[in-house]
Design a protein around this nucleic acid. Structure first.
Lengths: 260, 260
DNA sequence: GAAATAGTGTCTTTAAGACAGTATGTG
DNA sequence: CACATACTGTCTTAAAGACACTATTTC
């Protein structure tokens, strides 16, 4: 290991001195932001939940061209006075009536022809919501996802409506959905992300079910139980589930819950 | 498992028909791209290599305000007629004289005050280069990274020049470097990314060294060897390293090598 | 009691860590 | 020869899978 020598005094040695605050201020006063061409920037959010045996995402039907009539991810154009994270939270609130849920940035899509109108980048986010948080809000139109690949292969994802009919998506949103599913599957292996798709308290069977739906394959029940209890992330509540036609299971709670 | 009913004929049922190509064309003719405010978009690349016992990144000294004299990631403004990936490859070529190396998108930074000039998003990429690819090109000024956290904690990273003196960075580039190191450490656990930091052929000791430098901690030599040989990703070349003052090791090659 | 799932205990298999011992190069 | 590292083999430990068995609820 090459040892770094003790850092010397902050004198510059053979380098141009760092610019001063006043120099920066003078420069900024004459800076012309319009000198560079600027693309439009959209923020789209993949809002994921578990419905029965499938993953589902909140999608909105486009009422204007381009792609009128197709389903699209809820999104917005980035405002100049808000951060990317803020825009994602705004989409959740305004387009889905949701707040306080898990959100994280996914990927930025910037292919040339992805929006026929003009150059638009899409900074995509993923949000996870418990089915119990989904209520009667008419904006919360979830559609089942049909993932045509296994593991973390990746690739576009199909969308079906309530009748099981396949729906076409606008833009490159099938690919964005695919990237989201791939990311979720990857994270599930080493982070306790599954909790975000369940209510505050849940049984181990429910947690197992969520993992199986996200991963798209059955899991070993015994080792899942052992792994979860050994992880230290779960806290027994002492209460039992009710009204099951079998022996009721104990409910657990996640120790730390991060939210935006 | 809820069975999807057989997809019916593509007739719309109770939905507005999908927009036609001619409708889209008419709409696009009158679309005004300037109706929405647009931020500037930069593409910055964290070009990583291994130097001795440390990770190092290629950084350039800023010659103009803001942050004149500080080190910054090589970057460019996104052109309107190029994809994000293309802009990243262009930065590698023009600012580092590199091509054919591993590149992938990292994260998009969009905090409000991150550039004092105007609203600038930075779509950050990570590139991995073998030390053997680094030559006499004066643009290839690598600086050692000093990661002040363990594992995948995350957080800003310090940069030192050849004398071991700490250097200040421009913008939020310390955070971008930190995100890059965190990503690399995460990927190393389940993907054979370490190969990208080595020449075409290498010994197991060299591969182990790369992993240790990226992860910032020593690894068990025995299980590393077993794991690598069992993974099926390595191919023995039959040749031996030379001029070591000890028993020479066999050289291996990576089976698949992805590049841009 | 039958059915269904919860939860416990144990055996086997597999991967990782520890470490001894042999092999093969340089000086 | 000493020294350094490559490589092999074996023992131990820890985690995962398989599975038998008991427990507790509804019907």
């Amino acid at each position: 290991m090459r040892r770094a020598s003790k850092p010397g005094p902050p004198k510059a040695a053979g380098r141009a001195p760092t610019s001063s605050a006043s120099e920066d201020a003078a420069y900024l006063a004459q800076y012309d932001a319009s000198a560079f061409p600027r693309p439009s920037v959209a923020v789209d959010v993949v809002i994921v939940t578990v419905q029965g045996e499938r993953l589902a995402a909140l999608l909105v039907e486009r009422t204007a061209p381009p792609f009128r009539g197709r389903l699209a991810l809820p999104g917005t154009f980035l405002q100049m006075d808000e951060s990317l994270d803020h825009a994602a939270a705004r989409v959740l609130r305004e387009k889905a009536g949701l707040s306080g849920v898990f959100v994280e940035q996914l990927y930025t899509f910037g292919a040339l022809g992805r929006d026929p109108r003009t150059r638009v980048l899409s900074v995509a986010y993923v949000a996870l919501v418990a089915p119990s948080l989904v209520g009667s809000d008419p904006r919360q139109q979830f559609h089942a996802l049909d993932v045509p690949w296994e593991g973390e292969t990746g690739g576009p994802v199909d969308v079906r409506d309530e009748d099981g009919r396949e729906r076409e998506l606008a833009f490159d949103h099938r690919s964005i959905l695919g990237t989201a599913v791939k990311r979720l599957r990857g994270k599930l292996d080493y982070t306790p992300i599954g909790f975000q798709l369940l209510p505050e308290e849940f049984t181990l069977r429910e947690l197992l079910h969520v993992h199986e739906v996200v991963l798209g394959r059955p899991l070993n029940k015994d080792s899942f139980r052992r792994r979860m209890l050994a992880s230290g992330d779960l806290e027994a509540t002492g209460t039992m589930e009710e009204s099951a036609s079998h022996r009721p299971a104990e409910r657990y709670r996640f120790r730390r819950r991060s939210a935006v």
